[in-house]
Write a protein that binds this DNA or RNA. Structure first.
Length: 1006
RNA sequence: GCCUUGAUGGCGGAAUUGGUAGACGCGCUGGAUUCAAAAUCCAGUUCUGGCAACAGAGUGUGGGUUCGAUUCCCACUCAAGGUACCA
């Protein structure tokens, strides 16, 4: 019987599905183990061989843990809201739900044929209203919560109101370290309901605010910074402008410190932790308040009396500029201040004299996106405002400038400029001829600023002579004494904008009464997406939901009604924005624990049982998106007592990308000037030929250094005369679809010609009658025509071969190129393994019940040991090697013993489950192999009595000697020195020293 | 610039705490089988010299520690990923 993988695989996939073999139980005496993959967005292109890599690794782990006696949860689902389905809907008018459904079906078919042990009964889809009902509910919980800095956790907003009623917000503000205007209990009670709501919004964990965003008018949506390249949208290249919009935001900044601290207790890759640490960007320093003079006061050098700005000189209330600095010790080096052009004080403090210039400058900078400004480091630009601040310690007048090197979004959007201690300030000062006072002892600043923190401070009054650390402490103390500053920890992390002007996302459970947002009660959720005619923004610039006819909330009936009823006093407009892509993925791992629950996002018992993810696997590209937001939501839900742990994934591994091997053909282009009248010819030159030509050309060019080489006919195409004047232009590499190329890089010319009409009549210049393509490793992508489809691999070699080969390619965490040619190796291994069990007549199944030999047991047990270790280290590639070694050895031992082959099937089964199930069945077992225990490694089978010692001379290996392992150091040395070959090597010399490491090596130093 | 990761044959990669570098597979070369091909099997395959035994070199570069370094330390080069006027 031959190894008919297609039949075997179909048979067992059907068996697993019918018997629900991998359904996980929420109640079990076994210990739990939760293995999670990052769920995919179901794109229209389907899976390529890069996608299942991580799923195969987790599937091996899940199956292994089942063999080891764990109750394993291994679920899968779809992150099914997203832009591509919406773009497709805009183009074709098809409802995104429909295309999404179709894509999911394709994904499911593709996943099923690879033989994953997913518990599909727990499937989640973020676009399913039974799921997003709970996403909406979590949003409401965030709205109803604020971050209490005393308790260091989220608390109900109702508690905050109680505090305000009792004592105002003085104490809360002091703890929160926020710039929220203070009020007393009395004042609070006198505020209108609307005023109260506006104040509470400043504390809620999700809130509406005017946010400056990257607005793309053509796409009708807000773009994230990384969706903009060179000032235009990445998708389509449309212009992008900065625009203020009312948006929902998530107060993730409240959790900045806890998100940092939490990293210490989870086993995640250090690079990933580093990028989160970077993203959060904690820096310690101080806030300092600089008072601004009134525009009338312009004349003298200093304000007096020192430190207190006289009434007549001081600017209006609220004109003070707060700055954040990490180097308060350099404050005596301040010679100017710079505000971001967008800073709210700019228009107020600018004097009449400079108004025009400042407006012009702001106009010029607003045209550049923030990212643009940051990318362009070299150009120094700025404008003096005419205003002056007072130095808090010297009373000196400090000119206030604006400059686009200061970013509105970091710190307070203003800096105290210390040109001697900061290179950017230095360059700015040099450029505009501003004074550069030196406040460092024995440091030359004539060329560059001194950013070295070990420099001693000088010329700085009471901190002169102090090292930085001490000076910082002292300055902060003095600032606090004067009441114009304090120590402060600043974070780079910004609150996350949570609104999108798109259709295919979760609707907010929000309607607006008097312009104030109102939440819809849980019992009326889900609030499902309305039907719209067009998926584009409305003519007046509203999001796509603005096209919906039935999108108003009846607050009495508690249901969605037609917009026409808004005139009615109890009917209100619903929110038109939808939630961003990361909303649904920020908590899905909890839903898997109890996916069918319709009363709760997940039941308490299920949450208590599964608790957290033991192993989470996915790409590192989610480091600062999904993996940060989901940690934030988990911490919030933990604070609310909704989940039992505040970090949801104990261990995380980033799988490396599988790269494609692109194929290139080389188009030779004639000089267009010569061929303006001719129909353009397309000639492709075979790779090695092209390389020879290039080489030859450069050597001809070398030989004729002075003469210009213009008329060279290296291809011999000029015989007809028509190409006599052909000038060299160059070779253009063009992607050819990899399916046209065989293993020896030979192009199927006919297939290529039929690919595109413009190649129909192309000419090919061959070598040895073949067209050889060039190859290059790139990201696997449809646009590079280097995508390899797993369907083809499964059909040609089988799912077990695909699974083994993906693991065999290299370490899981490393990026590695795919090359289908190598797949015959692992496929051959499976065939060889099959043969071990089918040594009967005509390849019939045949195993014997004889006692295995010592050698056979040794092979088996060293393999068990290796695979145990490899799986613990996620080193799946080396396991595949050891399977090959085992099968090679057993084959040469002619082993057909049940006592060896039965456990062998079990250890292979996590990797190649179909063939293992089949062999397991043939061995006479009635249950699925997944119920079998993993064989136990026994040391006794590996114990050796002798060792082939490597004998080295001066560290250089020469030959081996077989010696008993019972020998002592001295005995080994004795035996070695009397050996003939050793004597030969020594040639009469007496060794200085003999190093003997029993069981390892002998090294003779002479 | 900063942070992170990496660099080993023609290719993918292996080498547990420093102890025989190149496991395993692909590819390639030769052979068996076959009318032929596929499939299968056997042998060889880091480089240089040599028929061979063997000798020399060798894990990005340069230094160091050590009896012994792919492994540890220092400096550098290159590549990939992340991030960026972060005050």
């Amino acid at each position: 019987m031959r190894y008919h993988f297609n039949e075997i695989e179909a048979k067992w996939q059907k068996y697993w599905s019918q018997n629900q073999t991998f359904k996980a139980d929420n109640n079990s005496d076994k210990p739990k183990y939760y293995v999670l993959d990052m769920f995919p967005y179901p794109s229209g292109a389907g899976l390529h061989v890069g996608h299942p890599l991580g799923y195969i690794a987790t599937d091996i782990y899940a199956r292994y843990m089942r063999h080891k006696g764990y109750n394993v949860l291994h679920p899968m689902g779809y992150d099914s809201f997203g832009l591509p389905a919406e773009q497709y809907a805009i183009q074709t008018g098809q409802h995104p739900a429909k295309t999404t459904e179709e894509n999911i079906n394709t994904y499911r078919r593709q996943l099923d044929q690879i033989g994953f042990s997913f518990d599909w009964s727990r499937e989640v889809r973020t676009s399913d209203s039974n799921y997003y009902k709970w996403t909406q509910w979590i949003f409401i919980q965030l709205f109803e919560s604020y971050y209490c800095n005393d308790a260091k956790q989220a608390r109900p907003v109702s508690e905050l109101e109680e505090v305000f009623n009792a004592e105002g917000n003085y104490r809360i503000n002091a703890a929160a370290d926020e710039n929220i205007e203070t009020f007393t209990a009395e004042e609070w009670k006198n505020y209108s309901e609307k005023e109260k709501q506006e104040i509470l919004a400043k504390y809620r964990l999700t809130y509406l605010s005017e946010t400056e965003v990257n607005w793309c008018p053509d796409l009708g949506t807000v773009l994230a910074n990384d969706e903009i390249v060179n000032g235009v949208s990445e998708r389509g290249g449309h212009p992008v402008v900065r625009k203020k919009m009312k948006q929902w935001s998530m107060r993730i900044t409240a959790y900045a410190q806890r998100l940092l601290d939490g990293l210490d207790k989870i086993d995640w890759p250090q690079p990933l932790k580093d990028s989160q640490i970077n993203w959060i960007g904690r820096s310690e320093g101080a806030m300092v308040k600089f008072q601004i003079s009134s525009s009338k006061f312009q004349n003298s050098e200093e304000f007096s009396p020192l430190g207190v700005m006289p009434e007549g000189q001081r600017g209006e209330k609220g004109w003070d500029i707060d700055v954040f600095t990490t180097r308060p010790d350099t404050i005596f080096g301040v010679s100017f201040m710079t505000l971001a052009p967008e800073h709210e004080l700019v228009s107020k403090i600018t004097t009449d004299e400079y108004k025009d210039a400042v407006e012009k400058y702001i106009e010029a900078t607003s045209k550049r996106s923030e990212r643009d400004r940051m990318a362009d480091v070299k150009t120094i630009s700025g404008q003096f405002t005419g205003a002056y601040a007072m130095h808090p310690f010297t009373g000196k007048k400090i000119p206030v400038w604006i400059g686009d090197y200061v970013l509105a979004s970091y710190g307070t959007g203003a800096v105290m400029a210390v040109p001697c201690g900061d290179q950017r300030d230095y360059d700015f000062a040099k450029h505009f001829g501003i004074e550069i006072p030196n406040i460092f002892q024995d440091i030359d600043i004539s060329e560059n600023a001194c950013e070295d923190k070990t420099a001693v401070i000088a010329n700085s009054d009471f901190i002169s002579g102090m090292p930085a650390k001490k000076a910082i402490k002292r300055i902060i103390y003095e600032l606090e004494q004067k009441g114009i500053g304090k120590g402060k920890i600043n974070y780079r992390l910004r609150d996350a904008i949570f609104s999108r002007q798109r259709y295919w996302g979760e609707p907010f459970p929000v309607y607006y009464k008097d312009g104030m947002p109102q939440m819809i009660d849980l019992e009326h959720l889900p609030l499902t997406l309305p039907e719209v005619e067009k998926y584009l923004p409305t003519a007046d610039g509203k999001p796509p939901l603005g096209n919906a006819q039935v999108w108003a909330w009846d607050s009495v009936e508690n249901r969605v009604v037609s917009n026409e009823e808004i005139d009615n006093k109890t009917v209100f407009p619903l929110e038109l924005n939808t939630m961003p892509g990361w909303a649904g993925s920020a908590w899905y791992f909890n839903r898997y624990m109890d996916a069918d629950n319709s009363d709760e996002f997940a039941g308490k018992e299920a949450l208590e049982y599964w608790k957290d993810v033991d192993l989470y696997l996915g790409g590192s590209e989610h480091a600062t998106g999904h993996l940060l937001y989901s940690r934030f939501w988990q911490k919030f839900m933990f604070d609310k007592g909704l989940v039992p742990v505040d970090e949801y994934a104990k261990k995380l591994i980033n799988q490396g990308m599988i790269l494609g091997t692109s194929a290139f053909v080389y188009r030779w282009e004639y000089n267009n000037e010569v061929y303006t009248d001719e129909p353009k010819k397309t000639i492709f030159v075979s790779k090695n030929l092209m390389e020879d030509i290039i080489k030859e050309r450069s050597s001809i060019a070398e030989a004729n250094k002075e003469k210009k080489v213009e008329q060279v006919d290296l291809l011999g195409l000029s015989d007809s005369g028509e190409n006599q004047d052909a000038k060299w232009s160059h070779f253009t590499p063009i992607h050819a679809d990899v399916s046209f190329v065989n293993a020896s890089n030979e192009l199927d010319i006919e297939a290529f010609k039929n690919w595109r009409p413009e190649y129909k009549d192309a000419q090919f210049v061959l070598e040895d009658g073949k067209y050889i393509v060039g190859r290059e490793v790139e990201k696997m992508s449809k646009s590079k025509y280097n995508v390899v489809n797993p369907d083809d691999i499964c059909a040609d070699y089988g799912a077990d071969t695909l699974r083994l080969y993906e693991m065999f390619l290299g370490p899981l965490e490393q990026a590695k190129p795919w090359n289908t040619a190598g797949i015959t190796g692992v496929h051959g291994f499976l065939k060889k393994m099959w043969k071990l069990y089918h040594g009967g007549n005509d390849g019939a199944f045949f195993v014997s019940d004889q006692e295995p030999t010592k050698e056979e047991l040794k092979t088996l047990h060293k393999t068990i040991k290796k695979v145990d270790e490899d799986i613990a280290n996620f080193s799946f590639n080396t396991s595949v090697s050891s399977f090959m070694i085992a099968v090679n050895e057993l084959t040469s031992q002619k082993c057909n013993k049940r006592a060896i082959l039965e456990p062998l099937a079990v250890i292979v089964s996590p990797y190649a489950p179909h063939i293992a199930e089949e062999l397991w069945g043939e061995l006479g077992n009635k249950e699925s192999i997944s119920t079998a225990d993993f064989p136990i490694f026994e040391e006794k089978y590996l114990v050796e009595s002798t060792k082939n010692y490597p004998i080295s001379f001066n560290g250089k290996f020469r030959f081996t000697m077989e010696l008993s392992l019972d020998l002592s150091k001295e005995e080994i040395e004795k035996e070695v020195l009397v050996n003939e070959r050793v004597q030969e090597q020594l040639a009469g010399r007496i060794p200085k020293k003999v190093i003997v490491v029993p069981g390892k090596i002998v090294n003779i130093v002479g």
